[in-house]
Simulated assay, not measured.
Amino acid sequence: MFHRGDGTAGTAETLMRSRFSAFAVGNEAYLLQTWHPRTRPASVPFDPGLTWTSLEIVGKSGGGPFHQEGTVEFRAHYRAAGRGDSMHENSRFERVGGDWVYVSPEASS
């Protein structure tokens, strides 16, 4: 739905889930569109030997319909070289023009 341009994510978590799906199918255009302009890379490198398998939301702060910023902590599971593994990140999100966008990983203390 969001990948086709049919609406936008109402929360940071919803955007996180749609971005995970975009990584899983290699939808670079959607990933770049939903990346904050000040941190957006020129391109998104995809590893052809890696398959994203599931997303686990660990926690969140803010990021709701009435917030302007928030974080979503997640664990993204994948398979590479026949082995399962995961990456863990606490991502920062902000609204730009009313739409949620991914900013960057939250700095750890």
Rank of each mutant, 00 (worst) to 15 (best):
F20G: 01
T51A: 14
P37F: 11
R40A: 14
P48G: 06
S91E: 14
V58M: 11
T39H: 07
K60V: 00
P41V: 08
G10W: 00
R95Y: 10
R75I: 12
G97S: 08
L31K: 04
F2H: 13
V101Y: 01
T39N: 05
S61H: 12
V103G: 06
F46T: 05
N27A: 13
G70A: 09
S104K: 13
E13H: 01
A22G: 02
Y102N: 01
V58I: 15
G70E: 10
V96D: 10
P41Y: 09
S108I: 12
P105Y: 03
L50D: 02
R83Q: 15
S61C: 08
G82L: 10
A76V: 02
T34M: 09
H36Q: 06
T71F: 02
T39R: 05
G63F: 11
G7C: 08
G64A: 12
E56W: 02
D47R: 03
P37I: 10
V101T: 11
S108K: 15
H36V: 06
H67M: 03
R19W: 01
F93Y: 15
T11E: 01
N90V: 12
H77Q: 08
G26R: 07
A24E: 08
V58Q: 10
Q68K: 11
D99R: 15
F66N: 14
E69A: 14
T39K: 04
A22R: 00
K60M: 06
T51P: 02
S43I: 02
R17L: 00
R95G: 05
F46V: 04
T71D: 05
G63H: 06
R75V: 15
S91A: 15
V44I: 15
L32S: 07
T53P: 05
G97C: 08
V96A: 07
V72Y: 10
L55A: 03
A42T: 14
T53C: 07
E89W: 03
R79A: 13
G97T: 11
R79C: 08
F20N: 01
V101Q: 07
H3Y: 00
G63Q: 10
T8D: 14
E89Q: 14
D6H: 12
S21C: 09
G98W: 07
A81M: 12
T8R: 11
S43M: 10
G7D: 08
A42H: 10
A22E: 02
A29M: 02
S104V: 06
W35V: 04
K60T: 11
G84P: 07
G10N: 06
H88Y: 13
G10K: 07
H3E: 05
G64S: 13
T14R: 12
W100L: 00
T8L: 04
S91Y: 03
L32R: 10
A24D: 10
S18R: 12
R92D: 00
L50Y: 03
M87N: 13
R19M: 01
A12C: 07
H36E: 09
P41M: 10
A42W: 03
G64I: 06
E69P: 01
T51G: 04
G7L: 05
G97A: 10
S86T: 09
E13C: 01
F66M: 13
G82S: 10
S21W: 11
R17Q: 08
N27E: 13
S104L: 09
M1N: 06
D85W: 11
E73L: 09
V101G: 00
L31C: 04
E56Q: 14
H3V: 02
A22V: 01
S61R: 13
M87T: 15
A42N: 12
V25A: 02
S86I: 02
